[in-house]
Amino acid sequence: MIYIPFIPTETVFAVLWVIIRAVLALKNKKFGIKRELMMLLMYVNLAVLLRITFFPMQINNGRVLPLEFDTANILPLRINMIPFVNILDYIDPVDILLNIAGNVMMFIPSGIILPILFKRLDSFWKVTAAGAGMSLCIEILQLPFAVRASDIDDLILNTAGVMAGYGIYALFRHMKRGGNTKTKSTAQEG
C-alpha cells in the first residue's frame, strides 16, 4: 500500500502550477497581473477540488489523512452509474443534504472563473461542458483509489454547480452591461 500525503501533494501541485505559468509567460512574452490573479483564483479552486475530491474528509491530530493507493484493492472498480441511488444510502437526511449541497457548491467557482479566464468559453453550454469535463476527469482519476468511488451523482451535481456558477457570472455580467447602458444613455440625454 502506498500512502500519498496531502501537504507534499499540494506542494508538488503548486510548484508545477508556478512552473507552467512561468513557462507560458516567457513563451508568450507577456505578463498581465490581472490575468495572473484570475489564474491564481483558478489554482485555489483546483487545489480545493483536489483536497475535497481525493483526500479523506476526516482529520487526525489536525492533519489531513493520506490518500491510500493499494494495488490489491483496485479491482473491482467502485463505479455507480445509476443516478441518485447512493444518495439514498445515507441514513440521516442532513447527510443527504450535505452531499448534494457540497457537490454543487464546490463547483460554483469553476462556473464563474472559467468564462472570465477563457474567452472561448463564451456560452452557458461551453462552460457547462468544460465543468462536466473537469468533474469527469476527477471521477476517472479516483478509480484506482480504494477509499474513493466514482459516482454519476457527483458528475451530475458538480455539473449543476458549474451551471449555477455560470448563472452567477452571467447575472453580474448583465448587471455590469446594464449599468453601463444606463450611464451612457443618461450622459447622452444631459
Rank of each mutant, 00 (worst) to 15 (best):
L75Q: 02
L155I: 15
K119A: 11
L26A: 05
P8Q: 12
G161I: 05
V64D: 00
N73L: 11
K126I: 04
P8T: 07
V94H: 10
Q188S: 09
G167W: 09
L114K: 05
T159K: 02
M163W: 06
A170N: 09
P144Y: 03
L117V: 01
W17R: 09
F13A: 09
L37Q: 14
G102D: 04
L40S: 13
L114E: 01
L37D: 06
I4D: 02
G167K: 02
V127W: 14
F55S: 03
K184Q: 12
A132S: 15
L16T: 12
Q188L: 12
R35A: 03
V127S: 12
V23Q: 00
L171V: 00
M105H: 00
G32K: 04
A14L: 15
V18L: 15
N45A: 07
V94G: 03
I156A: 08
N61Y: 14
I91T: 11
P109D: 07
V64N: 04
G111L: 09
A130C: 05
E139P: 10
R173K: 10
I112C: 05
I113M: 02
M39W: 14
P8G: 08
L50V: 06
G32F: 08
P109Q: 09
L65F: 00
I112H: 00
D95Y: 04
V15P: 00
P76I: 13
I79N: 06
K176V: 14
L155D: 02
E36H: 15
G133R: 15
K184D: 05
I96Q: 08
D70V: 02
D151A: 07
A146R: 10
T181C: 01
K119R: 13
D153V: 10
K29T: 01
L40H: 04
N158D: 13
L117S: 03
V18Y: 11
Q142E: 00
G165L: 07
L50T: 03
L40I: 11
R78T: 08
V64A: 08
I2F: 12
K184E: 10
S135C: 03
